[in-house]
Amino acid sequence: MAPMLEQSLFAVFLVGLLGGTHCVGMCGGIVAAISLQLPGQGTRFSYHFAYNAGRILSYAIAGAIAGAVGASTLLLKGFWPVQQGLYVVANLMLVALGLYLAGVWQAVTQIERLGVRLWRRLQPFSKRFLPVRRPAQAFALGALWGWLPCGLVYSVLISALASGSAYSGAATMLAFGLGTLPNLIAMGLFAQQLQVLTKNIWVRRMAGLLVAGFGAWGLARVALASL
């Protein structure tokens, strides 16, 4: 795996992990609703795992589609400015995400408006899987809820678009999804301890600066290549 891809995967994993407050705000109500309907405490982990597995699968599928669309420009001669432009946009989004994590700039949340129309068409299907009685229903509900409009998801999806292939796009979104996993699956297990970490202002600032640094380094590489 190329070093730059590894850096990008680590960056988006941090975005998912330390963007946990946003993720819990977006999906925490869904997880809580599922929890209230479940049988004994001993079986709850399998339901939450199934829900999150479905959600992350949808992220990976969206990333593969975005990566494939971005990669299609590689097949067209003379489209290097487009490829370079996508790379610049992807790194700008990393900078924006880093600033979001650091609590400096909240603009990425405005991107959620882009998916509202699609979600209005998908949301009614969720009624087919409620109330949740089997892990398979939780998985299907999670797969559907993976398309919920989310500024963080859409911002990382732009990075997937510029990743160069369907595989890299899927890997980018998978890394992000795995980053969100601890916050959501652990809500009823050790959420209090985890939230102490994710809400710590210095942890968020340092992680935000690290993510923004990855984006800034990518932009610097473009600038140096153009000299």
Rank of each mutant, 00 (worst) to 15 (best):
Y100L: 12
S163H: 12
L157F: 06
A102D: 14
L148C: 05
Y100C: 00
Y100S: 08
L130C: 09
L152P: 04
A90I: 07
L94H: 11
L101N: 02
T73E: 01
A102R: 12
P149L: 08
F129E: 02
A166G: 13
G78Y: 06
L74R: 08
V132T: 08
L92T: 06
L148M: 13
G70D: 02
S72K: 05
L118K: 04
L74D: 01
Y87A: 10
P149K: 08
P124V: 11
L148T: 13
L152S: 03
A136D: 09
W119I: 10
G164L: 11
Y167S: 13
L74Y: 11
S163G: 09
V88F: 02
A90Y: 02
L76W: 10
K77V: 11
Y100T: 01
A138P: 01
R117V: 14
E112P: 05
G146L: 07
L74H: 04
A136Y: 04
R134F: 07
A107Q: 14
A166L: 06
Y154P: 00
A162Y: 12
F79D: 01
L148V: 14
F139Q: 01
Q106F: 12
C150W: 11
I111C: 08
L97I: 12
G98L: 05
L101S: 03
G164M: 11
T109H: 14
A166C: 06
Q84I: 06
F129T: 02
L152F: 05
P131D: 09
E112A: 15
W105L: 07
V69E: 02
Q84S: 12
Q137L: 10
G151L: 03
L99K: 06
V108S: 11
L76P: 02
F129D: 11
T73Y: 14
V156I: 09
S126H: 04
G146M: 04
G164V: 12
V88T: 10
S72D: 05
M93N: 00
P131C: 09
L94G: 03
Q106T: 12
L157D: 05
A136E: 13
